[in-house]
Design a protein around this nucleic acid. Sequence first.
DNA 1: CTCCGTAACTTGTCATGACATGTCACATTC
DNA 2: GAATGTGACATGTCATGACAAGTTACGGAG
Lengths: 249, 249
Amino acid sequence: MPKNDNVLVLSPTPLYSQIREILRQRILDGTYQPHQQMPSESELIKAFSVSRITVRQALGDLQRTGLVFKIHGKGTYVSKPKAFQNIGQLQGFGEAMSRMGYETFSQVVGIKTLAAGKVVCSKLKVKEREQITELRRLRYLNREPISLDVTYVPKAIGDRLAKEDLEHRDIFLILENDYGLALGQAEIQIEAMLADESLARLLKVEEGSPVLRIERLTFTADGQPLDYEYLYYRGDAFQYRLRIERGHL
Amino acid sequence: MPKNDNVLVLSPTPLYSQIREILRQRILDGTYQPHQQMPSESELIKAFSVSRITVRQALGDLQRTGLVFKIHGKGTYVSKPKAFQNIGQLQGFGEAMSRMGYETFSQVVGIKTLAAGKVVCSKLKVKEREQITELRRLRYLNREPISLDVTYVPKAIGDRLAKEDLEHRDIFLILENDYGLALGQAEIQIEAMLADESLARLLKVEEGSPVLRIERLTFTADGQPLDYEYLYYRGDAFQYRLRIERGHL
DNA sequence: CTCCGTAACTTGTCATGACATGTCACATTC
DNA sequence: GAATGTGACATGTCATGACAAGTTACGGAG
């Protein structure tokens, strides 16, 4: 009898998604300890009164994000929290650094409104010649300049951002917490280049020094492009770290 | 009647996995064109004579690797190839490139056994002075040298690898398919540097050209470090692309 | 003509049941 | 005692069926 008669029914979010979040919570607060053994699927089925397919979907999500791992024939285990937090998670620079105990701030070196060029235009999916905001910030880590961020957002958002405390707050966090824009994913391209004269001056390095250039297009949860950035990191002072998973494929 | 009576039954690999590969093939060879519309789930069910859950697992895999995307209520579509198949999936260089239709091969420029230095030692978690294998390969994309890979693996594995066709096969695929070592995740660090004389000569660029240096430590599915690499990519010819997700899910 | 409901698609979620396969502990057998 | 087999239990795979929800096109009502 495929009738849904469950205590968990309260929000319009899928069942497996609710269960996934409950399990994530328990992992994060230590109910399920770092390196061993989650309840088995059949236990979870009884505990939540759902079918196996639902439990498996919840566990599968947690596995794909790296929070748990499974061993065929044995069970599902909680992953070790692992040295660096950055699990291929989209997060802002300050967000990542402050979590590691570094002190950061940003210096706004320019903010202006201009007509979108072709590239920005196609990335942000706005009409040609539409007004957008360009924001340039120098980011400091422990008093040293470490990167130049050039950010493009639609003018509507840019005008609001201009009034915010951009020196100490991440744009990502402002967009999410203050504006209620849920961020989804980002597409990133990373390449190596040499610092030209103006970039070298800003980052306080020699002209011709190696620079990590990251292009990042960030989308809202529902897939709208929201924020297009170029990040120029000093090659001698920054490493971009991440963890990636090998798929179940 | 859950009896399996299918034409596809011939190998011990899962059905959904066979279907996934067939569909991937059709996408790569253009049977399903770049930007629109895959057969619907019900069509695939009829075509392969399998259940919906199987079709969905195959399509779900393809979606997670970025090859297709779905729109609720409309259908499943082939992603534009220009985009990033590379979704934060751990994969080898050749693996990624061939999936995008590029032709690659590797030239082994050196392979030797030596005592592990401190860094390699701590990364691979082997005892100091233990023997390990260093493998140097130049990787070509469409006839052009594009990267130098320096790989460190324990001697036991290195000895086996030395007999393999390293010119045309990815190490990752050899480890997984031939040796049965399930890869789990990798930790990656990316930074920018300048090509020194020897690196410049190998990559056929000017000395002092920008180079992307990627350090990658790969683990088996059960968490054992297995393979430690330095990848030096030509900054002018390569971009490292990936997609990352915000948040928990 | 426009507006709107409905029907016919699509993918999303979930239940139930079955068998395959890997792991491990325990008891049986040699 | 060591090897073997067996059963309990874990996850993996797959079938069938149902309803929810988003999209689109068509046709009737205004």
